[in-house]
Every structure is written in C-alpha cells, then in structure tokens.
C-alpha cells in the first residue's frame, strides 16, 4: 500500500484523545503551530508566486526598485513572446514541441520495455532477482555528467549527436529502471492467483497476463508513465550536452539559454518557466496518491 497524500488527509488526528499539553494551553500552542506553518508555507510558495507575478508584469515593473508586489500593470506580452516571434513561431515554442516529442516517445518506450519486465520480475523466480533489481536501480543513480562523457563519444560515432532519437534513447534508458521498480510494486499488489485461475481455464500465461492482469494494472501504468514524463520533461544535463541546434533542443536548455546574453528579459524567462512548469504541476497533482513511490523512484512504498 502506498502512503498517499490523500491517505495522510483522511486519517484522523494523531492525538485525538490525549489530554492537552500541560505547559502551554492546548489552544495557545495550536495557534502557534498554525502561525508557524503559515509562515513556512508563505516562504515556500513565495518564489512560485513571484515567478507568476513577474510573468504578467510589464517590463518597467519587472525591474522596479523597490520591487512592486501589487500595483503593477498586467500584461500578457511575455506569454505571447514565448510562442510567437517576429513573423512566425519562436525558437522557444519549437523547443516546447521538441520536449513534447522527446518526453512522450521516451515515456512510451520506457513503459513498453518496463512494464513486461516488472511483471516478469514480480511473477517468476528469476535467478538473483534481488541483485538484478538493485543493479537496475543503481544505474539510475549514476551522475549524469559522468555518463554523458562516454555517451557523447558513442553518439558522435553513431551520428546521434544533436538528434531527437539520441535524446529519446538516453531518456528511455533512465526511465526504464524507474518504470520497473514502480510497476513491480503495482504488479505485486495484483494477486498471482488471478493468472493461475485463468490458466486453469485454458489460457496461456501470456494470455492471462494480457487479458486479466494488464487491465488491472492500467491505473498504475498511467501513474508510472506520468512520473516518467515529468522526469524526461524536466531533464537538463543530457539535453544541454547532446543537442545544440534549435530544431532539436528541448525546453530546459532553451529556457536556460535565455539568460546567456548581456541583458536578460526576465519577464520572458518567467513566462517561459510558467508555461514549462504548469503541465508538470497539473500532472503531479493527478498522481498525488503515488508521490511517495514516484519521487523515490519506486523504492519506498508502504
């Protein structure tokens, strides 16, 4: 069972029946705790709010000193600039499209490769199963800056530098370990007896998997795919070292490239960041039940 945010909500208060603390009054302490939480929440959320605010400010308000918190002129120009450049699509919007393609295809591939493997690891007594699984997870922990050196040479050999296919391959490779670990948890939750029963009815093991287990796994597959999508979407190191042209570059290096010049259009950076981050937040909200498992790469589920 994954401990989820929802579950954290639905369980009652931890200490319903305890007597109020003796030193503080129970109420005073509660007020103090709420105040503390509010302050912390404001600190945590302020940068996000500031980013959104900057993205809808006019340029002179963006650079105003002292900073303007409320009385600024609202404009959507920055968002327009993200998508439209003078006479056509902007380089940024192309990079967003590239990101959609690369993240999408690599997620599909990782799912197609990872889900059957997870099922096999869950159902069959594979030799040295634990070692294999740990090996798989540890490949995900390799420092990307180190891995990218030989990958760069390898891609140069095969002509994969600065191609979407190259990025898709490497993203698939780093999402497969996650998919296997995450999906194995979901497969473990589906009783193997379902398949055994189907096989008694004359189905082969493969048919039993396809017709009975897979449909039950669909919600888990969706959640896993969403996480893989987020990981690929946010990835930066491989993208910046393995691609260079505007036609191939994904959004993270493209957005980072906005601060390369002598003057930085922070309004545009903010708008691009908002456009880039919004889908992630929406998707993350959709899979909030599985966040604990997702962010630990499928390792922690209780």
């Amino acid at each position: 069972m994954g401990v989820s945010v929802d579950e954290a909500v639905s369980t009652g208060p931890v200490r319903d029946h305890t007597p109020p603390a003796r030193r503080f009054g129970g109420r005073g302490r509660s007020v103090l705790e709420i105040a503390l939480l509010t302050v912390l929440a404001v600190v945590m959320l302020f940068p996000v709010l500031w980013m959104i605010e900057t993205s809808i400010k006019e340029n002179r308000d963006v650079y105003a000193i002292p900073a303007k918190f409320f009385d600024f002129t609202v404009t959507l120009d920055h968002f327009k600039d993200v998508f439209v450049a003078s006479g056509g699509r902007s380089a940024l919007s192309v990079s967003f499209l590239n990101s959609v393609v690369v993240a999408g295809v690599s997620t599909v591939l990782a799912t197609v490769l990872g889900v059957p493997a997870a099922w096999a690891y869950s159902r069959f007594a594979v030799k040295a199963k634990k070692d294999q699984l740990f090996f798989i997870l540890s490949t995900r922990f390799m420092p990307p800056v180190v891995v990218v050196i030989p990958i760069f040479l390898m891609y140069r050999q095969f002509g994969l530098i600065d191609t979407k296919l190259g990025l898709i391959l490497i993203y698939t490779a780093f999402n497969v370990p996650f998919t296997i670990w995450m999906m194995k948890g979901f497969v473990d939750e589906v009783p193997a007896e379902y398949e055994d029963a189907a096989m008694l009815d004359g189905y082969t093991r493969l048919q039993a998997f396809w017709r009975f287990t897979l449909p039950l796994l669909l919600p888990g597959i969706a959640a896993t795919a969403v996480f893989a999508l987020i990981f690929s979407w946010n990835e930066f190191v491989f993208a910046i070292f393995l691609t260079s042209s505007d036609d191939v570059r994904t959004a993270p290096p493209a957005i980072a490239g906005l601060i390369g010049g002598t003057t930085v259009d922070w309004g545009l950076v903010a708008a691009a960041s908002v456009v880039f981050a919004l889908p992630v937040l929406v998707f993350a909200y959709l899979v909030r039940k599985h966040l604990v498992a997702g962010v630990t790469l499928g390792a922690v589920r209780r």
Partner: peptide
C-alpha cells in the same frame, strides 16, 4: 502547497 517546489525543474 508545500510540494510544489519539488516538482519544478531545476532549470526553472
């Protein structure tokens, strides 16, 4: 609300 920063890209 508290979880928002974690889901953002390091670039952003």
């Amino acid at each position: 609300l508290f979880l928002v920063p974690m889901m953002l890209s390091q670039v952003v």
